[in-house]
Design a protein around this nucleic acid. Structure first.
Length: 568
RNA sequence: CGGGCCGUAGCGCAGCCUGGUAGCGCGCCUGAAUGGGGUUCAGGAGGUCGCGAGUUCAAAUCUCGCCGGCCCGACCA
């Protein structure tokens, strides 16, 4: 590959509106261009990196027994109707010229399950099927370059077994494969316990790369390795001793007090941890009360999981008034029986607390949870805080911002039952297939690598995923000797199996150095008249910036050896 | 979906408040010099000022509508 003949439109200035480092550098380095919100073109360099990541993923999927497919992205809406997923707001829907309803794939559970109906006998199991295919999601807010887009390439795989033990094995082999994949890509991905979401199955693990550009928070314990998404994470709290209170709740006037903080300051009020926070949510169309300690914050995903609902939203003020007769600020669950009451486990056994009286400007003190409130279900609803005790070993937890690069799910029989994918087990009776699904976002992984490996000058690609492993920079193309030596070194590197590019542009040396560093090529051989005068060329390592002079005749060999050593 | 900001040459921006000639830097093209860290000089090309309507003698500039993009929040199977 010759730089002079390549489309590598590097930018001298930072593009406007690119905040995330990966977004900025991938644009500047000529890897990607934005077509519209959440839609990116991969340019040749970006495609090279994506192909290398894809290659690593493919190797590891084949290693665990995967068979590669390629499924359509355009699906009949009817198939999604049958699994109930057509109602997902992010799905792109369209009609063909005859008016038939179609949709674009968000994932491929439906189509793979449809194919799995052709499995005839338990003897053909286990099966592991995978592909690299575009996914489409009409996100409300695409952002951060490639980190959150509406169309993206995903490796998705699907496992089919008859029993839970088989599913467990497939899940485990994906855990192993994913660890290897991310390690080979140079990503330090943490495997974290995750919420499966409303449509998920029994268990799921996310692979998260810590980065400030991430959108997720994870709680992590350095002592024992416990790691969980904030949507799932638990922690231990020191017990609170409540002073004894009155025999029954006592109302007291609190004019103008509409918040936990205000009530904590109010004469006769109590600190937040002795208040009950009462929230009203609408779960699958029905209102419910949620109770948390005054200083705790609700995690909606925990509510989804715990209450087993598909959809939820905060109630409107009008709905709240209709239900409880008061507005937010004076809400409470004492005496409430008209709707379910879910309480966070941290409130269990608490006594003599303060909460709203369901009359504006009035609160109740002396409330005992067990005595005064008809709690329908105790759930873990609260957000874990930094420094709280690890649920496994009690060491303090840290909260880390991260981006999700992979997610593996045990789906169970949700899709196989909906689509009729079952086959006779050893007993002869038909059983629905036990499925797992497993995804890696290729573009997101690419961006995550750039996010994790860059400096002020550009990207520092690990050799395994670099668009080119080495560049031969011809510092003066008008000098025939220099040019010819550069060509020879370039050819020698190719012959040695190094993925090299020859920078043969008629540019000043500084331009070539800057571009090579911006693009992030791990190794560089600089061929110039000064070095050649004494038979030397300069070998430069992008990461660390080390440079040394090596004899021309040995340069290709030394570089090839270094590159091969770094490959994994 | 709520809040904020922005659409002017390929990229980054100024001009808009106070209506009248469309400008700067980078990049690009030509020539010359230079050639180990974005070099210099000279010449040149390139713009429906996001789209539509309105006000006006006159609109990049004022008004309204629409479209698009970015950031924060909410959401994310």
């Amino acid at each position: 590959m010759r730089w002079s003949r390549s489309f590598i439109p590097t930018l001298r200035e930072d593009p406007a509106g690119a905040e995330a480092a990966s977004h900025r550098l991938l644009l500047r380095g000529g890897f990607v261009r934005q077509l519209m919100a959440g839609s990116y073109a991969l340019l040749p360099l970006g495609q090279r990196v994506a192909s290398k990541i894809e290659g690593i993923v493919r190797e590891e999927m084949l290693r665990i027994g995967g068979q590669e497919f390629s499924l359509p992205s355009l699906h009949p809406a009817e198939l999604w109707q049958r699994t109930g997923r057509l109602e997902i707001p992010e799905i792109f829907r369209l009609r063909d010229r005859r008016g038939a309803e179609l949709c674009l794939a968000m994932t491929h559970e439906e189509v793979f399950t449809w194919l799995a109906r052709e499995l005839r006998s338990w003897r053909s199991l286990p099966q592991l099927w995978f592909q690299f295919q575009n996914k489409y999601r009409d996100e409300e807010r695409p952002k951060s370059g490639l980190l959150r887009v509406r169309e993206f390439l995903m490796k998705d795989s699907y496992s089919f077994d008859l029993d839970a033990a088989g599913l467990d094995r497939q899940f485990e082999s994906h855990l192993t494969a994913y660890r290897r994949i991310f390690e080979r890509c140079g990503l330090e991905a943490l495997a974290v316990q995750a919420s499966s979401g409303a449509m998920g199955g029994s268990e799921s693990v996310e692979f998260m790369v810590p980065t400030g550009a991430g959108e997720d928070w994870i709680a992590s314990c350095a002592a024992c390795g416990y790691t969980a998404n904030i949507e799932k994470a638990a922690s231990l709290l020191p017990p609170l001793a409540d002073p004894p209170g009155p025999p029954r709740p006592e109302p007291f006037p609190t004019p103008g007090i509409r918040s936990i903080a205000a009530l904590a300051e109010f004469p006769g009020g109590v600190p937040a941890e002795r208040q009950i926070k009462t929230l009203v949510y609408v779960l699958d169309g029905r209102p419910a009360l949620l109770l948390l300690r005054g200083d705790h914050e609700l995690v909606e995903a925990k509510l989804t999981d715990g209450a087993g609902c598909a959809e939820l939203r905060p109630a409107t003020e009008a709905e709240i008034r209709a239900l409880l007769g008061a507005g937010p600020g004076s809400l409470g669950a004492v005496g409430v029986s008209q709707c379910p009451v879910y309480a966070d486990a941290a409130l269990r056994g608490r006594r003599n607390l303060t909460t709203g009286a369901n009359r504006d400007g009035e609160h109740l003190r002396g409330v005992d949870l067990e005595r005064d409130i008809a709690v329908g279900q105790w759930l873990d609803l609260r957000r874990v805080g930094e420094g709280e005790a690890c649920p496994a070993c009690e060491a303090p937890l840290r909260l880390i911002k991260a981006v999700e690069v992979g997610h593996i799910f045990k789906l169970g029989t949700r899709y196989s039952e909906a689509l009729g994918a079952s086959l006779p087990g050893e007993s002869g009776a038909p059983q629905p297939l036990q499925m797992g699904s497993y995804g890696i976002g290729i573009g997101r992984a690419l961006a995550a690598v750039a996010e994790a490996h860059h400096d002020a000058d550009g990207i520092l690609w690990p050799v395994n995923v670099a668009p080119h492993e080495a560049v031969v920079s011809v510092l003066n193309t008008r000098d025939v000797g220099v040019s010819e030596t550069g060509e020879r070194l370039y050819e020698a590197l190719l012959a040695a199996g190094v993925d090299a590019i020859l920078d043969d542009r008629d540019e000043r040396p500084g331009v070539k150095f800057r571009d090579a560093e911006l693009v992030g090529i791990p190794w560089r051989l600089s061929v110039g008249p000064k070095g050649l005068a004494t038979g030397q060329v300069e070998l430069f390592r992008r990461r660390g910036g080390r440079r040394r002079e090596v004899p021309v005749e040995r340069a290709a060999g030394i570089l090839a050896e270094s590159v091969l050593e770094e490959r994994r």
